[in-house]
C-alpha cells in the first residue's frame, strides 16, 4: 500500500488507540520491541513496523499481516519500550478489530487435533479461543 494523504488522515490511529489504550502515535521507531521479540522470525511485519504502519494509516497491510496472530502476548516488548507502550495491547487492538468483523474468527474447534485434545492443557485451549475467536 502507498502512503497518501488519505492514509495519514485516516482514523486508524485513533481507532487502535481506543481499542488498545496505548498512545501509538508516540512510538519513535527505536526498534527495541522488534529487537527482543521471540517470535520475530515468524513475523512478516516486525512489531515496530506494525506501529509505523499504524501511524501512517496503512490498515490493510496490518490486517493481512501474520504478525498479529504470531504475537504471543509475552510482554517482552512492553517491558522494554522506551515510550512506555504496551505493544501486546496494540496487537490485541488490531486482532479485536478483525475478530469483531463477520467471519473474523481465526481459530475453530475442528482445527484441534485429537492429540492436542488429549494432551494440551486446558489453559492453552481456552487461551487460544479467547485470543483467536469471538
Amino acid at each position: 500500500m502507498k502512503v497518501t494523504t488519505d492514509t495519514i488522515c485516516s482514523d486508524l490511529l485513533k481507532e487502535v488507540e481506543e481499542y488498545s489504550g496505548e498512545k501509538v502515535a508516540s512510538c519513535i521507531q527505536c526498534g527495541k520491541c522488534s529487537g527482543g521479540c521471540p517470535m520475530l522470525e515468524a513475523m512478516d511485519l516486525l512489531p515496530h513496523q506494525v506501529m509505523r504502519l499504524a501511524q501512517l494509516g496503512l490498515k490493510e497491510d496490518i490486517m493481512k499481516s501474520k504478525t498479529l496472530w504470531v504475537c504471543a502476548s509475552c510482554f517482552t516488548c512492553a517491558a522494554r519500550c522506551q515510550r512506555d507502550l504496551d505493544l501486546s495491547k496494540v496487537m490485541e487492538g488490531f486482532r479485536v478489530i478483525q475478530l469483531r468483523q463477520k467471519g473474523g474468527n481465526t481459530m475453530h474447534p475442528r482445527q484441534l487435533t485429537p492429540e492436542q485434545l488429549k494432551d494440551a492443557p486446558q489453559q492453552a485451549i481456552i487461551s487460544g479461543f479467547r485470543k483467536y475467536s469471538k
Binding site: 517470535m39 515468524a42 504471543a72 502476548s73 492436542q116 494440551a120 492453552a124 485470543k131
Partner: peptide
C-alpha cells in the same frame, strides 16, 4: 530463561512453538 515458550501458539502455530 525469561523468553516466551510460545504459549498457546502450540495450538495454532505448532511449527513456531517448536522453534521457540
Amino acid at each position: 530463561r525469561t523468553d516466551c515458550c510460545g504459549a498457546y501458539l502450540s495450538i495454532t502455530e505448532e511449527g513456531l512453538a517448536r522453534d521457540t
